[in-house]
Amino acid sequence: MSKLSPDELLHLSKLSALRFSEAELRAFGADLEAVLGYVELLEQAPTEGVEPTSLPIPFPTPLRDDEPAEPLPAEEAVANAPERSGTAFAVPKVIDEG
């Protein structure tokens, strides 16, 4: 499996919505490569034709009735908001990437 290029690492941090200094990125990159090096072990696992498992135990499909519950009072819904405007959450403006 592969070594991570600086570009890949940068892309990865972008997808993770994390910012790093160059030194941090190098350090995290090294840690990541160590772990990825270790998980190469999985190449030896006999997984040919094996179904993937996402949940350890099979569950019946739980379905809910369409009965509305009392919503949170708006004050409570936005009580934790770092900033708000009325009962809306306020965030710095959205810039659409063009």
Partner: peptide, 15 residues
């Protein structure tokens, strides 16, 4: 496929 799906398959083996 190489990582996540592989891991989920190994999960089946372990089970």
């Amino acid at each position: 496929d190489a990582y996540y799906k592989k891991a989920q398959q190994v999960r089946t083996l372990l089970r």
